[in-house]
Design a protein around this nucleic acid. Structure first.
Lengths: 117, 117
DNA sequence: TAGCTTTACAAGCGTAAGCTTGTACAAGTC
DNA sequence: GACTTGTACAAGCTTACGCTTGTAAAGCTA
């Protein structure tokens, strides 16, 4: 059997951990609408290029970024869907935050069979 | 001047970091509806009482728990509002997750002045 | 080919996180 | 008072994190 020393966290852990750093949130802000190369991302920090590359790695491993290679450059952009664990967490622990809205919607549209079986 | 060596993280960082641990999320599940004493929380883990106490400390410092003392016991419960940073983050990076619902609501109720000034 | 650009990989350092054991302290019970 | 219960504080250990410097690899360009 393979000895797994310490494989990276998965699921909600990875996403939440990745988001718990201000530098990384700033990176997400940069790429949430535009697709940017690593270099341009790094240029907007006072950190070294390598440090930013590591942050990008964390975000990528958490599934928060998509990578597209173009020549020597790597272009990154936010994968919104990967925030699903955050949404789930919110709806679990603060149902009002989403639920009140949902309820209002369902009240307004009295046929809500919009749920998967 | 006071020397601040490394004061604990504040705002979104503290909340997200606190939530990024499965043990702590489990604690929140336990106290999200019921107010429980530290001992009963600790009893549902295989960790030591002290370890759980430390997790509670992290959650408390992040503002996620309220503490009420009753005799020698300390009763904890979830402070839902403290999840606001998570909600903010979600609405910043995944506006659809909340916004689509909001939009539907506003379409259905064409005058929604339900916002604080 | 050589040289340049863009980016990641690697090693090392200091600090923080998460855990354990040991202890202290406050509040009830006898 | 002495004992028990409920809980936090403290020290110490191991591992992870965030950063730096150094280097290598992949792709352009001349």
């Amino acid at each position: 059997m393979a000895e797994r020393k310490q494989l990276p966290p998965e699921g909600p852990d990875a996403v939440l951990r990745a988001l718990a750093d201000p530098h990384r949130r700033q990176i997400l802000r940069l790429v949430q609408h535009a697709e940017l190369p690593a270099g341009r991302i790094a240029a907007s920090f006072t950190l070294t290029q390598q440090a930013v590359s590591q942050h990008i790695g964390v975000l990528r491993q958490a599934g928060l970024l998509t990578e597209r290679r173009e020549g020597t450059r790597r272009l990154y952009t936010l994968r919104h869907e990967s925030l699903q664990p955050v949404r789930d967490l919110l709806s679990e622990f603060w149902p009002d935050a989403l639920g009140r809205l949902r309820q209002a919607v369902e009240t307004a549209h009295p046929r809500p069979p919009e749920r998967k079986p």
